[in-house]
Amino acid sequence: MNKFILILSVFLTGLLLTGCTLGVENDERALTVYTDRHYDTDQELFDQFTEETGIAVNVVKAGSDELINRLRTEGADTAADVFIVADAGRLHQAKENDLLQAVESDVITANVPANYRDVDNQWFGLTVRARVIVFHPDRVSEDDLSTYEDLTDPKWNGRVVVRSSANIYNQSLIASFLSINGESATRSFIAGLVANFARTPEGNDRDQAKAVMAGLADVAIMNTYYMGKMANSSDPYEVEVANALRVFFPNQDTTGTHVNISGAAVTKHSDNVAEAVAFIEFLTSPTAQALFAEANYEYPVNPDVDAAELLESWGDFIAQDIPLTDLGTFAQEATILMDEEGWN
C-alpha cells in the first residue's frame, strides 16, 4: 500500500533485534561495568582480565552523576555489577543511595590500605591523585611556598590560578577543608584565595599550568595526574611546559596534601558478585596497579607498587588524614560556600 509504513516497520524491527543482541557478549560468565573513567589504559586492563579469567567485561562509560542516576533508576533490574568512578565523594553518594554492597575479600584488603577504602568495605580505591601547587621556578622559590592557606596571603595577590569551582577537583579540595578546618576557616580560605586570583577561572587543569608558564600567574593549583600527562604529552610544547614547572606538595608540616581517589564498588543488585569481586581483586593487584601507575600517571593505591618514575622524582608526600567519605559528606556545603564567596 505505501512504502513508508513498510520501510519503517522493517527498520524498527531490525533495530529492536540488533538492540537485543548487540554488544552483550554471549559468554557464560560476563560482567557489566559502569565507569566514568574513559582511559585507553582501563580498557587494556579489562581486556587483560578477560584473557586471564575468561570473564567478559561489558562496559558503559558515561559521566559519574549520570551513571548514579542510571543505577538508581534501574534499581534491582540493573545490568551493572561494578561501578567505577573517579571521585570518593561520588562513591560515598552511591553508598548513601544504597546502590552498593559490602565485599569481604582478603585479597582486596591486603591490596588497598585502610584509608583508601570504605569503612564498611562498600568501595575500594584504585588510584590516587594529589592536588598540588605548581609553580614557575624563575618567579617563585620553593621556600616561598608552604600551605594552601598561605596562598591567601596578600603577597600572592594576582598570582594564583585555578580552574572553575564547577569542577569536582575543587569541590573535593574544599570539602576536605571543611572536614579538617570547619566552616568559618574554610570560608575565609576561599575568600582569600579568590581575592588573589590572577584571572576569573577558565579552562581545565592543563590551561592553569600554561597560564603560569605564560606569566599570567606564578602558581597554579592543579592535579599531579595532569602534570604527568603533560610531561608525556603528544604535544612537544606541552612537554616543555611540564618540564619548566615544578610541583610542590603543600601542607606537609600541617594537615597534608589533598588527595582524591578513583575507586570501584560492587553494585547492590549485581547478579555476578563473585566475578565482580575477582575483577576488583585484579584491578588492585600489583600487575594492574603497575599499569595504572605507568600509563596513566596516577599514584597506585597498592603500597607494593611504585609510582611512575616522574611521580617518584617529585618525592614522597604526606596526604591529608581524613576519611575520604568526608569528601562526599561535605561536597554540597563546599559548593555552596564557593558560590557564596564568589569563586566562579
Binding site: L22, G23, Y39, R206
Partner: peptide, 19 residues
C-alpha cells in the same frame, strides 16, 4: 547499550581527559 561506541563518544574519551 553496553560496549557501544560512536565516533562522538570516542571524541569524548580524549576531550574529557584534556587530551
Amino acid at each position: 547499550p553496553t560496549n557501544y561506541d560512536t565516533v562522538a563518544t570516542r571524541v569524548f574519551t580524549y576531550a574529557g581527559d584534556e587530551m
